[in-house]
């Protein structure tokens, strides 16, 4: 039996919706945000509309049941029910959406806030666009010394950072679950691999309080490490972060 077109549309729509929910929520274990899903479904509807109405024949089939519902005198009882139920559903939806709730308002946190052009750290002004890791040069010039620096960076990391960012640098340290936002996962391709070392230097040295105003509120518990670590230690720990995760810092130079 051929499924009516309108039903096809509805079934596909529901199928895609459920698929998004199931795949992200259960298979991958990372639910899809509702704000994104709303927009996704909006464009899925647009796509369905396009596919199902690009020929006249298909369009007629699609709207035929709706037309019949509105025009066919034989369907008066169904029509009356639909005309009462649909507005009621819409009303219920609007009521639920407008209902005050006790949730904190939605928050937006930019993962890569735009850095200021210069930043004052250790009573010194750094130009973030030109700042480079002074220890990076040893990677080529003196690999032995570089290994040593990375090892020192590792020590700094274990002493200070691993409580939150985890001993595997995966953002899953012993205290991580207590924090919101949770600490960044450096293993992920979307974090430090996208950034220049100067950006990390800025983020480590000035911590949560040093984040720019735009995209507030910032609730990051990241300490202001310039108060606890020396400049050298920060650069070393940056070496370690990249070395351990196997990522390469973002640069604009050809190798």
């Amino acid at each position: 039996m051929k499924i009516p077109r309108l039903l096809q549309v509805v079934l596909i729509f529901v199928g895609i919706y459920v698929a998004f929910k199931v795949v992200f929520g259960f298979v991958l274990g990372q639910p899809i945000p509702s704000s994104l899903l709303t927009m996704y479904m909006f464009f899925v509807v647009a796509g369905l509309f396009m596919v199902f109405t690009f020929t006249d024949e298909s369009t007629r089939e699609l709207v035929a049941p709706i037309k019949a519902l509105v025009e066919d005198p034989a369907r008066k009882p169904v029509r009356n029910v639909v005309f009462i139920v649909v507005p009621l559903l819409a009303g219920a939806y609007a009521f639920n959406v407008m209902l005050p709730d006790f949730d904190a308002p939605l928050e937006l946190r930019s993962i890569h806030p735009a850095p200021p052009s210069t930043v004052k750290i250790y009573d010194q002004r750094y130009d973030l666009s030109t700042l480079e890791n002074p220890l990076r040069k040893f990677q080529k010039d003196d690999p032995q010394k570089f290994r040593l620096l990375v090892a020192e960076g590792a020590e700094v990391y274990i002493r200070n950072c691993h409580y939150c960012h985890g001993d595997k640098l995966d953002g899953n340290g012993p205290y991580a679950q207590g924090l919101n936002p949770i600490p960044l996962n450096f293993q992920d391709i979307g974090t430090i691999a996208q950034l220049q070392e100067s950006f990390l230097f800025w983020r480590i040295a000035t911590g949560g309080p040093g984040l720019p105003d735009e995209g507030a509120p910032w609730l990051s518990a990241m300490p202001v490490w310039e108060n606890f670590l020396s400049e050298d230690e920060i650069w070393k720990v940056i070496l370690f972060l990249y070395d351990y995760t196997g990522h390469r810092p973002r640069t604009w130079e050809q190798e």
């Binding site: 991958l28 899809i32 994104l36 946190r109 993962i111 953002g171 960044l184 996962n185 979307g190």
Partner: peptide, 10 residues
Amino acid sequence: LGGPYHKYLG
């Protein structure tokens, strides 16, 4: 999600 970062959509 455990944070603002989505593993697959990010």
